[in-house]
Design a protein around this nucleic acid. Structure first.
Lengths: 253, 253
DNA sequence: CGGCTGGTTGATCACTCTCAAGCGTGGTGG
DNA sequence: CCACCACGCTTGAGAGTGATCAACCAGCCG
């Protein structure tokens, strides 16, 4: 990917911020050269395998981090094993919160994941003196709050079919980087990365119901599947019609 | 309530920040005397009647605001009328977001509500120069994000009975200002303020199901009702056992 | 008194869950 | 090389929870 990267003697990958693929969307997006230099001093990269739990709910968090590659989920588990995924973090999203020592949720690598980590205490100190980070973090947190609230509508009110269609349309938009007015008539293809079980945990369904809805959408000609996570949407507008959302251009702001 | 208050000639109530009941929890909690003076210049109070919609989704937001008295809900509506409440704002909670011009959700006064409003543009300017506001707002937003994610577990995975019990326990804690280790054996009484319909919109249920679950909890001796919103919980631990959450001390941080 | 609003309760329906069997692909070892 | 197993996925049958439709009740106000 044309990154300036090398592997240090501790086995941790070191990259220059300059070549970072998420530099213009991450928490550091508005930092100037000096500030980036400061961040470089306290950052470290770490890669996790698919399925690995990065932090367990209740654990101490020594780091905050940005997702560089891969998909991370935040999940909650009830005593009897019921699980709900409460956040889906894609590259440039931020993990952790200044001022909180313990993790409120399980943080799980859904695919192979690379994080850009900052020591939490040093990051907190930096926040006090660097408004460009604090303001960007506030902005990202407000966006995530809006997204969480959108998701509450899905969880509380949508049917299984609408949930699956919404999931696919959101993934399609984020994965393919569709902008505000994509060509709705072009077929869209992408990879889901997630298992049926992970999808079910996110949608508040069982994996069987998710599977059935995929079959239904396939039967309706809304999507087609190519083994192991591949999806093609021949007509994106048709998919949007299945989500239950306002048909007309309510694209993410 | 012992407030330094008077009504101006425009019919708007004016209060000094000094006597404000939410001063130590609101967005201005960490402001010094000078900063409060600046805020006083751009603030105005406004009261709304129960049931009134303060802002419709999509409307321009001229103000951001703090809730001073009353209960405010944020809700989303689908084309066919399905509605989901995605936020319950109590006194000291913050409405609106810097940097966004239009409201993403309906903002509704569930009870009579008094807001302390700030002109949005002036507030945004203030944010750039006053880290004590920005940091407090970040903190509050992160708390709301955590709360929203807790609610996602409720919406996605809990049974109707667990939802109603969770609602009551949360309300009990916020309404009575219970601290981390309240006396669980003391009876707790409070007022729900919300109609069955508003509760149902928040819990992702129908009002009939909510009503039935109240009846069930009453039959089980978990709660008793005294007409028009009054609730008594004789044994708070018994209520917590019905929420599906970890029984042991998982109090909000 | 009658209408209105919010709440309760009942009967039935349907969507999703649960339990269970079966399929396909990829990996391992005899 | 093929048998076997493991894992993720699909599909089916039946059960259960909550939605829907509907009647009724209580308090309030004109």
């Amino acid at each position: 990917m044309g990154l300036i990267a090398k592997t240090s003697d501790q086995g941790k990958t070191v990259m220059a911020c300059a070549g970072c693929p998420i530099q213009h969307r991450a928490v550091c997006a508005r930092c100037d050269a000096d500030e980036l230099l400061t961040l470089e001093k306290i950052k470290s990269y770490k890669t996790y395998q698919a399925g690995q739990t990065i932090i367990w709910a209740g654990d101490d968090m020594q780091y905050v981090a940005s997702v560089v590659y891969g998909v991370v989920t935040l999940s909650q588990t009830m005593e009897d094993g019921r699980r709900q995924t409460v956040g889906l973090l894609l590259p440039s999203d931020f993990i952790g919160r200044p001022g909180r020592k313990t993790a409120p949720f399980d943080v799980v690598a859904a695919t192979e994941v690379t994080l850009c980590r900052f020591d939490r205490l040093q990051f907190e100190k930096l926040l006090l003196t660097t408004p460009s980070i604090g303001n960007r973090l506030l902005e990202m947190t407000l966006d995530e709050l809006d997204a969480a609230r959108e998701w509450m509508l899905l969880l509380g009110r949508k049917t299984a079919r609408e949930k699956v269609a919404s999931f696919l349309s959101i993934l399609a938009q984020r994965e393919t980087g569709l902008q505000k007015h994509p060509d709705f008539n072009e077929p869209v293809s992408f990879d889901m990365h997630l298992t049926r079980e992970a999808i079910a945990e996110y949608l508040g369904l069982t994996l069987e119901t998710v599977s059935r809805q995929f079959s239904n959408l396939k039967k309706s000609g809304i999507i087609s599947l190519q083994g192991r996570g591949g999806v093609t949407v021949p007509d994106f507008t048709a998919l949007l019609n299945e989500t239950g959302d306002d048909a007309d251009g309510e694209m993410p702001a």
